[in-house]
C-alpha cells in the first residue's frame, strides 16, 4: 500500500484503566509520527477530546485499539459501540485482554464494592452503575487481536499497529518484535498480510525462555517473600525461593521485571500451552519441592500467602478456570476488511 493513500481509520479508547496503555501508544517515540502517514485517527478521547458523536459521521472505523477493563455499564456500552463500529477490535493491555489489576475486585464475593455514598437527589446526574464483576473486553464483545502487557512493550505494540493498521508498510525495525512473535504472526507481518484472527502479539513460550537469569537447579527448598532476601547473583528467582511467574506467563516482554531483580507477576497472560496459570504455578513449584517428607512439605506450603492474588494478579476475570467469564477472541464474523 502506498503511504498516504487510503489511510486506515483508527480509534483509541480506554475504559476502566490508568491511561498507561494510551501513553504507551502515544509514546512510541518517533514511531508515532509516521502513524499519520498511513492512519487517520478519527476517535481518541484522551488525546483529541473526541466526542462519541464524532463517530457518527465516520462510517466504519477500520481498527479500534481498546484498553482498560470493563467495570461499569458505560464501559460495557463503549465496548459494544466500538465493536459495532470497527472492522477490527484490538484488546490492548492486560486490563482489556484479561481484566487486569481491576479484576482482583472479583475476589470479593460481592464484586466491586463502592463505599456507601449518600442517596442521590433527582437534580443530580446519575453515575454509570457497576457491573457485578469486572470483565475482560473479550467477555463483552468478540475481540480480533490481543496485545498483552501492563503496559504492552513498545516493540510489540508497534508490531500490532503495523500489522493491523498499516498493512504492507512494515519497516525493518520490526525485527525485535518479530523475533518474539509466534511464527504465523511474524510471517504475516513481514508479508504485509493481516495475521490470523485471534493472534496475540506476544510470544508462544514462557517468559523463562527469554529471561536472562541463570537457571541451574530446579529445586524448591524454601519460600521467600521478596522483602526477605536479596541475592545479586543473577540466578533464577524461582530457584532462589521467590515466587516468580515467568514459568506460567507468555513471553514477549523479554523478562523486563526479572532483569531488574523483581519477580514476574504475569501481565502477559498465560502461554497457549497452559490451561490455568495458577494451576501451572502450583504444579511447577510442588513438583520441584526438595523434600519427600509430608510434614516438611506441609510446613513449606504454610509459607505461601495469597496464591489467588499473586497467580492471577492480572488474569482473574479471564484465565482463572474457576472464576473466568468466557471470552470470544478471533471469532468475530464481520472480520475480513
Amino acid at each position: 500500500m502506498k503511504q498516504g493513500a487510503n489511510k486506515k481509520k483508527v480509534a483509541v479508547y480506554t475504559a476502566t484503566g490508568c491511561r498507561t496503555c494510551e501513553h504507551a501508544m502515544v509514546d512510541l517515540h518517533y514511531e508515532v509520527n509516521p502513524l499519520t502517514h498511513w492512519a487517520e485517527v478519527v476517535f481518541w478521547p484522551y488525546l483529541l477530546g473526541s466526542a462519541w458523536e464524532d463517530l457518527n459521521g465516520e462510517g466504519r472505523v477500520d481498527v479500534c485499539f481498546f484498553a482498560g477493563a470493563v467495570q461499569t455499564a458505560d464501559d460495557q456500552a463503549a465496548a459494544v459501540r466500538l465493536r459495532d463500529k470497527s472492522q477490527i477490535l484490538v484488546a490492548v493491555g492486560a486490563c482489556a485482554a484479561f481484566g487486569g489489576l481491576p479484576g482482583l475486585a472479583n475476589l470479593s464475593p460481592a464484586g466491586p464494592e463502592p463505599e456507601a455514598a449518600p442517596e442521590p437527589s433527582p437534580e443530580m446526574p446519575p453515575l454509570p452503575p457497576l457491573l457485578p464483576k469486572v470483565l475482560a473486553l473479550g467477555s463483552v464483545v468478540p475481540v480480533d487481536y490481543v496485545v498483552p502487557g501492563c503496559p504492552p512493550t513498545p516493540p510489540l505494540l508497534w508490531a500490532a499497529f503495523q500489522a493491523v493498521a498499516g498493512l504492507g508498510t512494515a519497516p525493518a525495525r520490526l525485527g525485535y518484535a518479530a523475533s518474539r512473535l509466534p511464527g504465523p504472526v511474524a510471517e504475516a507481518l513481514a508479508a504485509g498480510l493481516l495475521p490470523p484472527r485471534g493472534s496475540v502479539f506476544a510470544g508462544d513460550k514462557a517468559v523463562c525462555a527469554s529471561c536472562s537469569r541463570v537457571k541451574e537447579e530446579k529445586l524448591f527448598r524454601r519460600v521467600l517473600r521478596p522483602y526477605q532476601a536479596y541475592e545479586e547473583s543473577g540466578r533464577c528467582l524461582l530457584e532462589q525461593g521467590l515466587i516468580c511467574q515467568g514459568v506460567a506467563t507468555r513471553e514477549g516482554c523479554g523478562g523486563l521485571c526479572t532483569a531488574v531483580g523483581v519477580p514476574c507477576r504475569g501481565c502477559f497472560g498465560k502461554p497457549p500451552a497452559i490451561v490455568d496459570p495458577g494451576a501451572k504455578m502450583v504444579a511447577a513449584i510442588s513438583s520441584t519441592i526438595d523434600s519427600s517428607d509430608a510434614e516438611e512439605i506441609a510446613c513449606l506450603a504454610e509459607d505461601f500467602v495469597d496464591l489467588a492474588g499473586t497467580f492471577y494478579r492480572y488474569l482473574l476475570p479471564s484465565q482463572c478456570l474457576l472464576m473466568a467469564t468466557p471470552m470470544t477472541v478471533g471469532k468475530h464474523e464481520d472480520h475480513n476488511p
Binding site: P151, C257, V260
Partner: peptide, 8 residues
Amino acid sequence: GRFDHPVT
C-alpha cells in the same frame, strides 16, 4: 525498570 508502572 520499565517505561511505565516502575518496579525497582
